[in-house]
């Protein structure tokens, strides 16, 4: 079956790219870093083919259900990372981004068929809501990866462990700037997602997602805090990184809440 084959190919390519990234991070193998980046491009192409194949096989738009949403999110993260690579040369970041991509994609496979959205709930507004949230979460994933790398790099710098991974990781300044940019891009998208979500809930009779809604709001509050404190409070570096990591954790827990809710409700 071509869909399954494409899925397995995509996953395998991501895994190999990640292993290459790790080898570049810990063993300083520059070649494997370059190779990982190219492979990630190939993996993204394979991922696009997989999503297209699913669409033609099932006839659903990619973001109609949780499986499609997670898969699209996963692809978005890779594309965003490749985009970031164009403006910053930070090959080591791949070691942080690729596993998240993988988790999203495998998570998508896990909820495949389980979490069908009931037809009355599926509407155009819901799709807009999902699309905004996916884009926002893509940006926050990049911010999260950069922030995680920041926390590790800062720890190494403080512990004076110079060498190995320290040498391969980008500078604190660059990591902080990537995190800040990504958060600034993600926040308005998330805001749009929250607004459309609220509209959707008021229009629809079904009140499906109360727990997830609360987490979604919390995610928005945390990121709003990070953005405002960066802007007004001069926050940067470790504090901002921890805020970003927390916000991302909230964002992911929204997805988890949906999965549980839809899984048990189906």
């Amino acid at each position: 079956m071509p869909v399954t084959l494409l899925f397995i190919t995509t996953v395998a390519l991501y895994v190999v790219a990640w292993l290459l990234d790790l080898s570049s991070l810990f063993r300083g193998a520059k070649r494997s870093g370059t190779l990982a980046r190219r492979l990630l491009g190939v993996a993204a192409a394979s991922h696009v083919a997989y999503i297209a194949a699913e669409f033609f096989a099932g006839g659903q738009t990619p973001i109609a259900d949780l499986n499609g949403t997670l898969s699209t999110l996963s692809l978005g993260v890779v594309l965003a990372y490749l985009l970031v690579q164009r403006s910053y040369t930070v090959p080591a970041l791949g070691a942080f981004v690729t596993p998240i991509t993988l988790v999203f994609l495998l998570g998508a496979a896990l909820v495949r068929g389980v979490a069908e959205v009931p037809p009355p709930v599926a509407s155009a507004l819901l799709q807009v809501h999902i699309a905004f949230n996916i884009l926002g979460l893509v940006a926050f994933t990049v911010a999260f990866a950069a922030s995680t790398a920041y926390v590790i790099q800062e720890h190494l710098l403080r512990k004076k462990r110079i060498g190995g991974a320290f040498r391969q990781l980008p500078s604190l300044g660059v990591l902080d700037s990537i995190s800040a940019h990504a958060t600034n891009v993600g926040f308005p998208l998330l805001t749009a997602g929250v607004v459309t979500g609220a509209l959707f809930v008021t229009q629809s009779s079904a009140s499906l997602f109360s727990g997830a809604q609360a987490m979604g709001l919390l995610t928005w509050i945390v990121f709003a805090g990070v953005v405002v404190l960066r802007l007004v409070g001069g926050w940067r570096g470790r504090r901002a990184a921890f805020g970003t990591i927390m916000g991302f954790a909230c964002g992911v827990s929204v997805l988890a809440a949906y999965a549980v809710k839809l899984g048990s409700g189906a």
């Binding site: 300083g28 520059k30 070649r31 790099q153 710098l157 110079i162 060498g163 320290f166 040498r167 980008p170 500078s171 604190l172 300044g173 660059v174 700037s177």
Partner: peptide
Amino acid sequence: ETAIAEGTVSVSSIACELAEKIFG
């Protein structure tokens, strides 16, 4: 292909390298 030339070995250049790792 190897990291043989990486990591400076004089105090001044290490100071530089570290500064670059902090500020870019």
